[in-house]
């Protein structure tokens, strides 16, 4: 079927719920309203209020209750309406979801997938456009996934729903309806923890994920670059092997993400490359991110998010140094 990311995730959820009766969805407006982005559209009609649960407005409660459900043998998939609202449940994720398995020495585990829309570029109000992947990756114990296309979104979500771990599933709002692609009707898995080499080249490596993949691809085409382009797909645990393999081949690396530049995923990747492959480098590592500040109002967001000009300039610097 031809599907955008919303349809692909909706289709995955329907199949996951059919496959596993322990799966329930819970969140704000996910029932009759189908979620504010319509990702859960129609699921309440098929599975009923018992499995598609409109909750009170309480993000800590939603994530905390999901932890309790998972402890009692269910497999909840909570939806947090926007990434900015998820910080109200941050304590539950960091204090509990990240470490329940470890602090019980695997006698208790938390099979759950927390879905939330992330990143900007669609002129939403403040607090609707954050890119929080680094926060959730830093703690350890949370698997952090971010698809860049409908095909990966379906396969990653199916895989996440079959894992016995808490997974943070970040859905770039801008990509929900940006484009359609062929998505198989049947269930399939995209491996978690494995990056995707989506374009092969010899001269440089560009590592990215989520919204920025599309900006990067456009720059690569316009500049006719002979580049490896890596879509991380999983942020944590990071696929270091795939990164190092490419960097050792090309010797030049740019890391591009929409999240703020400082203390981010780019810093983590750059440090790993510097640690293990610095003598394979022909030029300093280049990072591109949004400005190191809280996400601005929608009127200013296009001045904040990396655009093709910023990415292009960074690549020029990489190729000429």
């Amino acid at each position: 079927m031809m599907a955008n990311m919303v349809t692909a995730i909706n289709n995955a959820l329907e199949q996951i719920m059919t496959e596993n009766e322990k799966i329930v969805l819970l969140g704000e407006d996910i029932g009759i309203d189908g979620g504010v982005f319509r990702v859960t559209e129609g699921l309440i009609n098929k599975f009923g209020e018992r499995r598609v649960i409109d909750t009170p407005l309480a993000e800590s409660g939603i994530i905390g209750a999901s932890i309790g459900m998972a402890l009692s043998g269910m497999h909840p998939i909570p939806e947090i309406q926007f990434a900015g609202f998820m910080f109200l449940g941050f304590g539950q994720l960091i204090n509990h979801a990240s470490r329940f398995r470890s602090r019980t020495r695997s006698t208790m585990s938390l099979p759950m997938v927390v879905r939330t829309p992330v990143s900007g570029g669609v002129r939403t109000l403040e607090h609707h456009s954050d890119s929080p992947e680094a926060y959730y990756s830093h703690i350890g114990g949370l698997i952090v996934v971010e698809p860049s296309n409908p095909y990966d979104a379906k396969g990653l979500l199916i895989k996440a729903s079959r894992m016995n771990d808490p997974v943070i599933f970040l859905e770039p709002t801008k990509l929900y309806r940006l484009f359609k692609q062929e998505v198989p009707e049947e269930m399939y898995e995209i491996p978690i923890g494995k990056a995707n080499l989506i374009r092969e080249g010899e001269d440089l490596t560009i590592i990215t994920y989520g919204t920025m993949l599309h900006e990067v691809t456009s720059v690569v085409k316009k500049k006719n670059l002979n580049a490896d382009v890596i879509d991380l797909r999983t942020i944590n645990p990071i696929d270091e092997a795939a990164i190092l393999k490419s960097v050792r081949k090309t010797g030049r690396v740019a890391i591009v993400h929409e999240a703020s530049l400082s203390f981010g995923v780019g810093a983590e990747i750059a440090a790993r490359i510097a640690d293990k492959a610095i003598f394979d480098l022909k030029a300093p590592i280049v990072r591109v991110g949004s400005a190191s500040l809280p996400y601005p109002f929608p009127g200013y967001e296009n001045y904040h998010i990396p655009n093709e000009a910023k990415i292009s300039k960074a690549i020029d610097r990489l190729m000429t140094s």
Partner: peptide
């Protein structure tokens, strides 16, 4: 407390 609510739901 929210864990307990989720467990009670289960």
């Amino acid at each position: 407390l929210p864990h307990a609510a989720g467990m009670a739901f289960a």
